[in-house]
Design a protein around this nucleic acid. Structure first.
Length: 417
DNA sequence: GTCAATTCACATGAAAGAGACCACGGTCTAGTG
DNA sequence: CTAGACCGTGGTCTCTTTCATGTGAATTGACGA
């Protein structure tokens, strides 16, 4: 323990490249948002009526992840709330992220969560949904007020719960005497509105705002500004920020990733006891983020998913070429036998493959092989440097020994002529 | 050689079941005054 | 008499199965040049 003690002491004394890390964290709202003036202005114009107790139009915000949507909304609503508070205007803004599992990804949970925002205790399950609606309405209509619901990642909600929920929400106003409700929807998926029922679409997107991706120069601006706050002067080597921006711009202009990259690079430099962040640290950070991302996704998957993934690994390693659903299913079934796991039906496996695709671990493209059917061509989309690590992590998770997976491979080989 | 029909190997959809969790209301039990 | 324990009912949620239908192009086979 004495060692730990000195470790902590040293840690405290150790100098850091950071001055104040908070400006690099994703929850940070700067007082000056760069390159989003147009959108923020528009948004302000749209939402401003709520300060006069009028119902603002419903708004829809589109844009890829890391393009400042959430940030802009946060900023604008903060300002509105600030003023409303000062002038004593009854405006409420409720922010909800529909993507967070177990929070708002079904109709029941969404309404329950909204009702909770009004201080009502709603059990996580057990009540009929319309009962929750009633509670919610009552809470909402208690006083005269304008309420803005900000629904982040609204596409996730629709994907899981259908657009019925949204339709109900848009019609809330008809049932309310005192309160008025507007909806601000945020979506990463640009083609999302086409999936909506036309009725929902028209009432929900009275106004639309598009957030284009940042280009490399804009990301550089943003990084510079944040770096100024969070790093000590001269703690960053020349070119680091430019390269960081380039990385991020390559990945469809995601500013959040760029900031994360910069932060991790700083942490790596800290750990190496250096007082300057170098290009090398940045590269290390890139690799670390990538690795952590995949590893994290992989080990948090359920057993069945891991088994399927492992089957994909085995085939991929053997073949180094795309794997078809049927082949994968065969290997998976045998693997299940070894793991004394009840194999799922092919129908289910097919869905799971699609989900793994969504997670970005593999790429599954549906192709028709003509006479030889229609199937998915599955390709692992991991950087090859990570394949070994992830595979052994999977082995560990599934409690497979290397011998067992080898044995399994040998069984597999004679199948294909 | 051309063209439509056929066929494969799954993809994709819809519905429904299983099992876990939970609230609510009624009934029973034991402890209290 | 009352608080708490203990059902039964009815609800949601997730994962899964079952059954049904869809699908894109290589292949086939009939047809005409």
């Amino acid at each position: 323990m004495a060692q730990l003690n000195t470790f902590f002491e040293q840690f405290l004394q150790k100098s850091s490249v950071f001055a104040d890390k908070k400006a690099l964290q994703s929850a940070y709202v700067p007082d000056n948002i760069m390159h989003r003036d147009v959108q923020i202005n528009q948004l302000a114009h749209i939402l401003a009526p709520c300060l006069r107790m009028e119902k603002p139009s419903n708004v829809f915000l589109y844009g890829k992840s890391g393009t400042g949507k959430t940030l802009s909304v946060r900023y604008t609503t903060d300002q509105i709330l600030h003023l409303a508070h000062k002038e004593n205007i009854p405006v409420r803004i409720i922010y909800l992220n529909c993507k967070l599992k177990k929070v708002a990804d079904t109709e029941y949970r969404l309404i329950a969560e909204l009702a909770r925002a009004f201080g009502k205790a709603i059990p996580p399950t057990g009540l009929p949904t319309d009962e929750v609606y009633k509670i919610f309405f009552r809470a909402l209509d208690q006083e005269r007020q304008v309420v803005l619901f900000v629904l982040d990642e609204i596409d996730q909600l629709v994907k899981h719960a259908g657009d019925e929920t949204l339709y109900n929400l848009t019609r809330v106003n008809a049932e309310l005497k005192n309160a008025q409700v507007s909806i601000v929807g945020i979506s990463n998926d640009v083609g999302f509105s086409d999936q909506l029922d036309p009725r929902v679409k028209s009432s929900l997107s009275e106004e639309e705002l598009v957030f284009p991706a940042y280009n490399a120069i804009e990301i550089q601006d943003i990084l510079r500004r944040r770096a100024q706050i969070s790093f000590k002067p001269n703690a960053i080597e020349d070119g680091v920020i430019a390269k960081c921006a380039a990385y991020a711009a390559r990945e469809h202009g995601d500013a959040r990733r760029a900031l994360e990259l910069l932060r991790v690079a700083g942490e790596i430099a800290d750990r190496k006891n250096k007082n300057v962040v170098t290009l090398q640290d940045l590269d290390d950070a890139e690799e670390k983020i990538e690795r952590d991302r995949f590893l994290d996704v992989v080990i948090t998957q359920p057993k069945q998913y891991q088994a399927i993934l492992f089957a994909a690994f085995v085939l991929w390693e053997e073949r180094k070429d795309s794997v078809l659903t049927g082949e994968l299913y065969g290997v998976y079934k045998r693997l299940c036998g070894r793991l004394s796991l009840r194999p799922l039906t092919q129908r289910r496996v097919s869905d799971i493959i699609a989900e793994l695709d969504m997670l970005g671990i593999l790429t599954a493209k549906v192709t028709s092989k003509g006479r030889y059917g229609r199937t998915r061509e599955i390709v692992l989309s991991l950087p090859s440097s990570l394949e070994g690590k992830i595979k052994s992590a999977l082995e560990e998770e599934l409690k497979l020994t290397t011998a067992e997976s080898k044995e399994h491979l040998q069984q597999e080989s004679p199948v294909q002529p």
